[in-house]
Amino acid sequence: MNKRLLAPVVGILVFLGAWEVLVRAGHVRPFVLRAPSRIVRYLTQHPSGYASAAWVTIQHASIGTLIALLVALLFGSAMAASEFFEHAAQPVLTLLQVTPFVAYIASVVLWIGSGTKPALFIVALVCMPAFTFATVDGMRSADPATRELLASVDAARWEVLWRLRLPSALPSLFTTARYNVGLALIAAYLVEGGNFADEGLGSIGRRAASLNQGDALWSAIFAMALLGTISLVLLSLLQRVAMRWHVSQRRQLR
């Protein structure tokens, strides 16, 4: 195994080992914290339930994130183009970003109904502001010399957008995506706990918590952590392909 793969695996094994030891040494009551070995055993005994729930959660989080990204690219382009629009949108986006969404999940479910819709809506809503700010910043960072060059051959607005501004926003969009992965999963999990759909890891977690089923609850938590890790790894791979040309992707001196 090469070093790049070995290091994170060692890190995780050490973490799980310490967790196991801590629980077995009896410092923590089982409901508060289950040992990883017990969680893994429970998960392998109920594979299909967790797999189908995880699949639902992945869909909520990823489709919601994609919607957020599309809306953000639209808003961001408009904000980068118009100062008025930027100043009008900024406070609203900031408001969205700082309001704890947990507080209004129930209201959204009452408003747009149960099931998938509120999950996608809230995931998209909470991920959108950061993506929008990243789009604006990235587009602003486009090289002025290249902008002038494109102007010298009368490039249309959409060509400048497509060939210069959007690619310039890639680095900041990827940075934001790393942060939004966690946010999207948390939002999906919490909405699934309250959207009366009985689907997704959030629904398992919510039910297990109310019935005092520690194994089921900790398995849901464990599955969420696994989803987050896998998402981040996939995102890194995507970034390596999409941003081969960028400084962040070159080997660094230490």
């Binding site: 090289d143 010399a145 290249t146 002038e148 060059l149 494109l150 010298s152 051959v153 009368d154 490039a155 249309a156 060509e159 060939r163 210069l164 690619p167 890639l170 941003m243 040309w245 960028h246």
Partner: peptide
């Protein structure tokens, strides 16, 4: 009118070949 600016202004995500094509690719 073909311009050569003081800074090369190459697009970092385009290869040399694609950068050389840039002005042909727009408009």
């Amino acid at each position: 009118v073909a311009m050569v600016p003081q800074q090369p202004g190459l697009l970092p995500w385009r290869t040399v070949r694609a950068n050389a094509r840039l002005l042909l690719d727009v408009n």
